[in-house]
Design a protein around this nucleic acid. Structure first.
Lengths: 338, 338
DNA sequence: ATTAGCACTCGGACCCCACGAGTGCCAGAT
DNA sequence: ATCTGGCACTCGTGGGGTCCGAGTGCTAAT
């Protein structure tokens, strides 16, 4: 069946191009790979693949390179690759002596960028599903207070809130104790109900409402969904895959965060274990020449938070996917135990 | 006095090169600038400047470009430039509606990178000088606790600590209350003394010592001195000033943080209002082609924390210095009022 | 269905040369 | 003592032309 061989040719082209970053020609393929057919046959297959839009030639007298669709097909027909052993060991040794959640995230993102030699992104584990362990109200001025929410998974979220008017010390202390009682042990969803009740109690102080709001917001995961990066330098090293102002656009998009977060969320909704967006599939101009590989992680395997990598479309998909998958699994375990 | 004119020539060379990124020749200088002398005279001056090591030619038949020493001389002979008016307004409007310290820092770093079109760095205001407002001890497991320190300037620092052994609930609560009392209102310096006393009290629980340590560390500014970046893309856009793997090294150095922090601290010690390190003066290989401009900021003008920018040596020094100075002043004011 | 052979294409490397910006220096002017 | 005009020289850049070879598509033979 020649269909099979054509897939094999595509695979060989992708692998060759990824390895050398040069277009691969029919002769080179016939010599190097174990396809066992002549270059002429490969040329015919290539013609078909080009017809199907999976490969293209940069110019008439050059070899072929995969198109976005070609990478897509390659990725879809991929048997899950196991992570290399040394990498496996790296994950455990590197992450096992992390001391707190910050540290875990920090180490993870660095590790992931080193394993994949690409830009790595890790979103902080979301509080969404974890109960509130404690709420602290600390005054930082006559009419302002700091709300600190500590969650069961040892995260701390803070925000400041205006009380609207000067508030006496005893009153402040009393309400703070009260608030804590009304909040502890509840998930964000339950909080919403219980705190709006609390703020509406007869005799409740006027500034209870904004405070309650701030607590709920903080419990939901803070005002911002934080993400952390590492390995931006790998972009610059990607060499000929970008001209330098394209690197600039990508770095801008990374700093934006919001674009990337939206993308990651979309990808998480797709339900696979590891999601891949290739080139234009990112639906983002600045990322048109990059691919994003993402996976969710969270306690019990619920994909409540996200991590992933970003790099030029010409990347080692199997290896990167394996690394992302492995780090996501490991992080899930860690978050569970914390 | 020809010495004066020579300075003017150097200044014109620096300004011309910064503006065009091309070596400037004697004829262009004679035509464009208001020096009022012929190109031959300028050539003579150039010869002297080259002798002094302030300028160089990339190749025999090209104009001159400033050396690191040339930039240094230029900067040292600089009258302080006022910030452009639109920029001034940008600072106030952009920063005035920040809601909390995080937000202030976040906005500042972005603003600074936009004003200067370079990479901006802002170190989080250090707790060093501000008293502790509250210490919370929250258990997050049978034998682990989370230490949260809230400072008078509304910062929250956290770290986890191992208790060494399972601890009963009442005991835990009692010690937590105790700890809070022993800490509140003290500066980190005073804390060190008072908490080691506290931990050494007769009858004190065994796990008091590690907890006390964690509190002191957190009060000192957390386990890490955090810095935050913006504008990495500006590096990539700097065009011909870097080849792309040099960008990579710089990005690496930025992620390292520790290198940059050391450098900033050194610079802060120099006592000027705005400190400048040019090229090799950074004493850091990765930054050999970049300059760093830094200023301290803090309540009451005490330079307890740092901010600055980093960019190619070929940069607009007066403008960048003005922007750094202005943002540092503004931040000082904000921190003071918080 | 595969292969060998062949004519054809075309980008990249190489060479060569002319151009011109820029220099250093010297002799004369101020 | 300082500046200027002039001049010969350097050398990097850019344009134009040529050649080479990798790679292709097609066709005829297996």
């Amino acid at each position: 069946m020649s269909e099979d061989r054509r897939r094999a040719v595509l695979r060989a082209i992708v692998e060759g191009y990824v390895a050398t970053s040069e277009p691969v020609g029919s002769k080179a393929l016939a010599d190097a790979s174990a396809l066992g057919v002549s270059s002429a046959t490969i040329r015919n297959d290539m013609a078909v693949l080009e017809e199907e839009g999976l490969i293209a030639q940069p110019h008439t007298s050059a070899g072929r390179i995969p198109t976005d669709a070609g990478y897509r097909s390659f990725v879809d027909n991929l048997a899950a690759t196991a992570l290399q052993d040394p990498h496996k060991r790296a994950i455990t040794t590197f992450l096992s002596d992390a001391v707190d959640l910050n540290d875990v995230v920090e180490r993870s993102v660095r590790l992931l960028s080193q394993l994949t030699r690409q830009v790595a992104v890790v979103q902080y584990p979301s509080l969404r599903e974890s109960a509130v362990r404690r709420v602290e109200l600390v005054r930082i001025g006559a009419d302002r207070a700091l709300v600190v929410v500590v969650s069961a998974d040892a995260r701390v979220e803070q925000s400041t809130v205006a009380l609207g008017d000067a508030v006496g010390d005893e009153e402040f202390e009393r309400v703070a104790r009260d608030l804590n009682e009304a909040s502890v042990g509840r998930t964000p969803a339950a909080l919403l109900a219980s705190l709006s009740d609390w703020a509406a109690r007869p005799g409740q102080v006027a500034w209870a409402a904004p405070v309650a709001e701030a607590v709920v917001a903080a419990a939901r995961g803070g005002t911002v969904e934080r993400v952390v990066f590492a390995g931006a330098a790998n972009l610059a090293r990607a060499g000929a895959d970008f001209e330098s102002d394209a690197i600039g656009s990508v770095l801008d998009a990374l700093e934006e965060q919001v674009v990337l977060l939206r993308l990651l969320h979309e990808m998480a909704g797709e339900g696979q274990d590891v999601a891949v967006r290739i080139g234009a599939e990112t639906r983002t101009d600045a990322l048109a020449r990059t691919s994003v590989i993402a996976a969710g992680y969270g306690p019990g395997g619920d994909a409540v938070s996200l991590l992933g990598t970003l790099g030029p479309t010409r990347m080692d998909y199997p290896g990167t996917m394996a690394a992302v998958r492995a780090v996501a699994r490991y992080l899930s375990r860690v978050v569970e135990n914390e």
